[in-house]
Design a binder for these strands. Sequence first.
DNA 1: CTATTAATCTATTGATTAGTAGAATATGGG
DNA 2: CCCATATTCTACTAATCAATAGATTAATAG
Lengths: 216, 216
Amino acid sequence: MTDFPEAPVYEHLARLGKALSAPVRLRLLDLLDQGGCTVEELAQRGGLPLKNTSAHLQQLRAAGLVSTRREGTRIHYSLHDRGVSRFLGRFQEFAEERMGDLRAEIEEHLGREEAVSAVTGTELEGLLRNREVVLVDLRSAEEYEEDHVPGAVSIPSRQLEERLDELPWDVTIVAYCQGPYCVVSPRAVRMLNATGRRARSLEGGYVRWKRRRDAD
Amino acid sequence: MTDFPEAPVYEHLARLGKALSAPVRLRLLDLLDQGGCTVEELAQRGGLPLKNTSAHLQQLRAAGLVSTRREGTRIHYSLHDRGVSRFLGRFQEFAEERMGDLRAEIEEHLGREEAVSAVTGTELEGLLRNREVVLVDLRSAEEYEEDHVPGAVSIPSRQLEERLDELPWDVTIVAYCQGPYCVVSPRAVRMLNATGRRARSLEGGYVRWKRRRDAD
DNA sequence: CTATTAATCTATTGATTAGTAGAATATGGG
DNA sequence: CCCATATTCTACTAATCAATAGATTAATAG
């Protein structure tokens, strides 16, 4: 192993990097940023094996990024504080800025059109103020209940097709789902546009909007 | 491997985390933040094997954190842009904030007194304005030549003992070295205080001062 | 006290990654 | 063209880490 006098300090610093070096953990952090929850719920929301989820959560806890509290027989995880949420936002922003292939991957993943025509947080504020949009929260009813962008109506993505008649033809629809890289809202936007409506995604979904709100 | 629709995006994001997950790479980034240089020089400054250094630099380049340019037979590495420097500052700040044992390690490493009584950047500005301090740059003459904190005099740490008489008894001495976790200035401060002078470190050394200067 | 549920701990396997030695590449000077 | 220098590439070993299965702990309800 390499050896320089400052090594011990850098080894501690690297623990933070290690915590952020696995895709699963980054995903878990984004999921937790939507609101704390139990291990089981988290595993389910993330589509991950339970034991696996638990193991990664311990690492995140060791790095000081998440904290736990017991709730009877289950254990409730959440981001350690708002600073973590803010840092995650900056981390992702920084990564997106300078990793060209990451941007490419995002675009391919979310669908080029939606990525390009996504509404930014600032833009949304103006649109909402002037009542120029209908804002749709595609997450589950429970998630909407817990917190949502003011002015949004709740239409969980599964009910979207059967509740299409609630959505206007003459006003732009802005839809959002959970995380910054969630596929739900781009898919919904594609579908809505196919019906002839004008629809756009909210860039970064609920999580990025919340990070912006809690920024200071 | 785990499997969720957003996985490809998170895998790209994790590349940034991986780049920051090895102590050696974090060290190299701090060294590069003092100014770009060649692989050989970097290996020497960091006290690392050459091939090893080269290998890590490639990874940093793949993550978009550093860039290269050829200078004849040698290759000059530097941080890709100021954004990287700023991000590194935030990364370290964030890590220090919430990792208690990191703070403990830093204090133990640099010596408790010096860590506690270090002068912050803001504080230094005021002290310099009122000419209440002598500011000493302990880095090499070349490093000083390239860039230094305005108002600092150059006394490379190796010459410190023989040039002690240049330093005042009646005014506080503030000393700085390279990186945020460099041991040189705390050691010098201890020595100066032992002679009966009043000396303090500049918190974070040259690198953190520079990051502050280039912040916007 | 026992059974049940939620989560963690322990141990094992397979996959990545760090470090390193030797070969290969690229540039500039004779 | 050949040589010296700086760096990278390739191949190999040892260490670390992710995923997973089985046993274990912790709280609660009966």
